Amino acid sequence: MEKLNLGVIVAKIDVQNQVEGVHIVMPEPIFYKELARSAAKHKIDLYIFSPSEWTEQGLYGFRLYGNVWRREIVQLPDIVYDRCFFTNARQRQACEDTLDAIKRKKNYKLFNNNLPSKLMVYEALRTVEELIPYLPHTEQLSKLSIVPRWLSIYTDGVVVKPAAGMHGKGVLHITHDRTTMQYVIRGRNLRNERVDACFSNELNALKWLYRFKKELTYLIQPYLVLRTEDQKPFDIRVLMQKDAAGVWQLTGSMARVGFSNGLTSNIHGGGEASEPFPLLAAKMGDYKAERLLNKIHMISGQTVSAIESHFGRFGELALDFGITPQGSIWLLECNSKPGRQAFSGVNNNLENERPLQYAKHLQQRVTANQIVI
């Protein structure tokens, strides 16, 4: 079998010209170095590239030599591992245009399909009877008049968040105090800065929300009490990956714990990762903690199968679960580009090994002219 060319596309690579030479700043520096070192052991030619590296001369990529990234001309990828995290529409379009241009030169395979909007994923999962009890009620925030109606139903308030993933940015918790008649809004803006606002009437609250969300598509959900005893928000992130045989496996699960009285537990927002069992056992006892984790892992397997049946082939997916103080499980989100901070070093670097194993499996199936599943 020919050597596998695995191209990892990112939205941007920062190349800095300094006195001592060129300095390369990768968007996920630790992850990509670990991935490149593992790829060398698998005899995979792995390189990182961005849209700006597609030129008339061909594709330039960054390969790791020792501890240093070097930019050089590379062969077109057999498989593309999409790790583009966009900060604007222009970046998204540039990545799409680059992949289309490369596709016209070489018929590569994508490691992962892209997930559509959170609402489309929610609606797809709602078609699976076994998953319905774990899905919080979700609607598009098409009209701001929805908010007061929802607040009259859900006494703990509502959460509004961008339909596209923002690493916890732009998420708000809105409550209506029926005693003081005040509307209280807290969360983080799109610059990841803390937001605290209070309004004495509905109209002013909705005007503020209109300016806040701008033209972005937002979703609304009931606020779920998902906190530790010291009022830190937490969730359980499960990483599901395919192995060398193309079979879904549970790579690991980690608890993500946010700031005290914060709204999200996202690592990008300052949250920390910890082992889930001790956290749950301290709240509910060993027996119930073990049962909850086993249940979450079972739901995870059902979820990735449902996602593939609706949206095509994937190599890895991260799933976020919330657990209420009463022990109810809620599937909060699915992510096709999971960050690695929470799983660094899990199971002897298995979270970085499995993408490479599955990439080799993909290449073998394509070479054998078999249908890739």
Rank of each mutant, 00 (worst) to 15 (best):
L4W: 05
G7R: 06
E28Y: 09
I30W: 11
K33N: 11
E34C: 13
A39F: 08
K41I: 13
H42R: 14
H42V: 08
L46R: 03
L46W: 02
I48T: 01
S50T: 10
E53C: 12
Q57A: 15
Q57I: 10
L59T: 02
Y65L: 15
Y65T: 15
G66A: 01
F85N: 10
A89P: 06
Q91W: 06
Q93I: 10
C95V: 11
E96Y: 07
L99V: 01
A101L: 07
A101M: 07
K103E: 00
K106R: 09
N107S: 14
N112R: 08
M120V: 13
M120G: 12
Y122R: 00
A124V: 05
E129I: 12
Y134L: 01
L135F: 03
P136Y: 01
Q140S: 14
K143A: 10
I146F: 06
V160P: 01
P162D: 02
A164E: 13
A164R: 13
G165A: 09
L172F: 07
I174D: 03
R178L: 12
M181I: 11
R186T: 03
L190F: 13
R194Y: 10
R194V: 12
D196F: 15
L206F: 04
L206P: 01
R211L: 10
I220W: 04
I220G: 03
P222Q: 03
Y223W: 00
Y223E: 00
V225D: 03
D230C: 08
K232Y: 08
R237C: 07
Q241I: 11
D243Q: 12
A245Y: 14
W248H: 08
W248A: 05
Q249V: 13
M254K: 09
M254A: 09
A255E: 02
V257Q: 00
S260P: 08
L263C: 02
T264Q: 03
H268C: 12
G269F: 09
G271W: 02
G271S: 04
E272D: 12
A273Y: 04
F277E: 14
L280Q: 04
K283C: 11
M284K: 08
Y287R: 15
Y287K: 14
A289K: 01
L292K: 06
K295F: 11
I296L: 00
M298W: 14
A306W: 04
E308G: 08
R313Q: 15
L317T: 07
I323S: 05
I323M: 02
P325T: 07
L332M: 05
A342L: 06
S344T: 15
L350E: 11
R354D: 08
T367M: 15
N369H: 13
N369R: 13
V372Q: 11
